[in-house]
Design a protein around this nucleic acid. Structure first.
Length: 493
RNA sequence: GGCGCUAUCGUCUAGGGGUUAGGACGGAAGAUUCUCAAUCUUCAAACCCGGGUUCGAUUCCCGGUAGCGCUACCA
């Protein structure tokens, strides 16, 4: 397929969060997929705040979204706010209304809502209002009676839907709405199963469906890549686009991210593990986090797992997206502090850390160490970094892996730890005395330390390991630590 | 209740009418190393159920079941 040369032919995609909560991992993945698609195709990435729900919008949420996106360090080319575009939305509503494809509903909100769904079956419209004459409708509107504007979903008695190409046509004897999803394939739904949804609320504010479509049309969005929870809404959106005289864009719905219990991710139920900033604060690298999210619901189909942003961009395609929901395999936090992240995310992070140049890693580690109250120099940090690089999975692990480099006084530890394998406290004492005797004379470099301590072990008639362990514990305060000679060299006399 | 979507190891996934059903994480065992980590080797672990179609279905079709989504003047 020849590349489009005019920018008008390039894809335009958008990420459109509604600021009613913090940025969660599912939204982050939607952003990432949109971004990847835009960058892969040389298209345009748009960020649009879908803030039509005045009641539930919060500034804290807006902050959380920007904070999360800033950390991911993925950019966008254009930015919009729906609340600034009300005129556009109302204009589209007016257009649809004037075509006779929408009508005023003077029924008070929520009246008899318990009857709308449930055992009674599908609710389609409030009785009587759909057939109300234009004269009466106008009269009551002029009189100031509040109304919602509802879409007149074709029920088989309309003629205005005839002009091709229309998504509304008969299939198996039923009037149906059709569209082709890039992920889920051909989708068909009988209009008899679509209710007369609202376009405008009685306070004049647009609903999500209207605002979203009006903006997508106005911004010339070519591909709508979003969560699968919108798959059934898409029939309504197709209807809106066509009623307003636009060709619907290409849709691509993403499988949902769910919790290990199969339910959708929610902060209330599952805690902070669903929030992007939690991963940031726990010491994930944005690259690893992006990598992890990409593997949820998408596959390059060649067994590749660790991939750079460039490789992901290069490999990304809508065809690689699969259809089944994916579990984010975190463990329910047993204690309040313990976050047990998806093991694969942690592994990917550890791999990414290992792949980072020492200088970069050191630079990222330094602020964490300083934040914890240790005034350590960048030079020192640079020396420490290679010793712990293979021993940390999250950046914050630096505080537990390298603690003894930072403190003047080791916290108390069990003296029994000093006793070497197959040895006793007498041996430990012997070793430490020997070390005390010889170390002051040794040059604190790897090779001299190695030679001196091995020689000492030989002299004492014990194994090298038995020699090293008491020293390690005395120096580090625990048995498990980086290699001894390097550690001593960095620590200095 | 109605409508829609989905179903491969514990998890993420590859595959596809005939395969020893592949990879990764996690788990187990071993090797290596001054401990730990890293690394390497090995092992256990899956096609939801029932019908069809077919010489042959995990794969295609239908039904069931389960999960999820939508069914608001929320998004």
């Amino acid at each position: 397929m020849p590349e489009a040369t005019s920018s008008a032919d390039k894809p335009r995609v958008r990420f459109a969060p509604s600021p009613t909560g913090f940025l969660h991992v599912g939204s982050a993945r939607t952003f990432i997929f949109n971004w990847l698609y835009a960058r892969h195709t040389g298209g345009t990435m748009i960020l649009r705040l879908d803030d039509t729900d005045v009641e539930r919008n919060t500034d804290a949420s807006v902050t959380s979204i920007f904070e999360g996106l800033k950390w991911l360090a993925l950019d966008w080319d254009e930015e919009y706010k729906q609340s600034n575009r009300g005129a556009l939305h109302r204009q589209m509503a007016e257009t649809i209304f004037q075509k006779g494809l929408a009508y005023r509903d003077f029924t008070p909100a929520h009246a008899g809502d318990s009857e709308k769904s449930g055992a009674q079956g599908t609710w389609l419209f409030n009785p009587g209002v759909r057939e109300m004459s234009r004269q009466e409708s106008d009269r009551r509107a002029v009189a100031g009676e509040p109304f919602a504007l509802r879409f007149r979903v074709p029920r088989g008695d309309e003629s205005m839907w005839g002009q091709p190409p229309s998504a509304v046509r008969f299939a198996e004897g039923k009037l149906c709405v059709h569209f082709d999803d890039a992920v889920y394939g051909k989708q068909v739904k009988a209009t008899a199963d679509i209710e007369d949804f609202a376009l405008l609320r009685s306070d004049g504010m647009p609903t999500y469906h209207l605002a979203s479509c009006a903006d997508d049309a106005d911004l010339r969005i070519s591909h709508i890549i979003r969560g699968q929870d919108h798959l059934s809404n898409t029939f309504k959106h197709v209807l809106i686009f066509e009623a307003a005289g636009y060709t619907p864009p290409q849709f691509a719905h993403l499988p949902l991210l769910v919790a290990p219990d199969g339910t959708k991710l929610s902060k209330r139920r599952h805690g902070p593990v669903v929030s992007v900033t939690t991963y940031r604060d726990a010491g994930f690298l944005p690259q690893a986090f992006i990598n992890f999210l990409c593997l949820l619901g998408w596959s390059p189909k060649n067994d590749r797992e660790q991939m750079s942003l460039l490789e992901l961009t290069d490999a990304f395609s809508l065809e690689g997206i699969n259809r089944a929901n994916a579990v984010v395999n975190f463990k329910e936090p047993a204690t309040t502090q313990e976050e047990t992240f998806d093991p694969k995310a942690v592994w990917l992070n550890a791999e990414t850390i290992r792949g980072l140049p020492v200088e970069d890693l050191s630079q990222r580690l330094l602020p964490i160490v300083r934040e914890a109250g240790f005034n350590i120099s960048p030079e020192k940090m640079l020396q420490i970094t290679p010793l712990i690089r293979e021993r940390i999975k999250l950046l914050c692990d630096v505080l537990t892996a390298a603690d003894f480099f930072f403190v003047n006084q080791l916290p108390p530890y069990d003296p029994a730890e000093l006793i070497p394998q197959k040895g006793d406290s007498a041996m430990a004492l012997k070793v430490l005395q020997k070390a005390q005797a010889i170390l002051p004379k040794v040059d604190f470099q790897h090779d001299p330390l190695d030679q001196a301590l091995r020689a000492a072990a030989l002299e004492l008639g014990i194994k090298a390991g038995q020699m090293f362990q008491p020293i390690r514990v005395a120096v580090c305060g625990r048995k498990n630590a980086p290699p001894l000679f390097e550690t001593l060299a960095v620590l200095g006399k």
